[in-house]
Amino acid sequence: MCPRCADENVSELTASPVPGVWKVLRCDLCLYTWRTSEPARRSTREAYPERFRMSRADIDNAPQVPAIPELRAEARGETP
């Protein structure tokens, strides 16, 4: 489970070059990434601080930086 948003869909990005020491996981929803050897405050849902948690609404309502501009007339296939 993702420590930050509690989503169950998690992918393994990599494993330690020295076998069996840690893995790096990523939440497929909020894209939080963590190493399994990190302190509980970063790697478990129970200990993850309230102020850093993220919800589906936080993701959906996140401002875009920078805003996506309008396509130019040429890019829209129109004659400028």
Partner: peptide
Amino acid sequence: LFRLNDGDGGF
């Protein structure tokens, strides 16, 4: 790669 601060979303 590694994380710097507790609240960082990743590395």
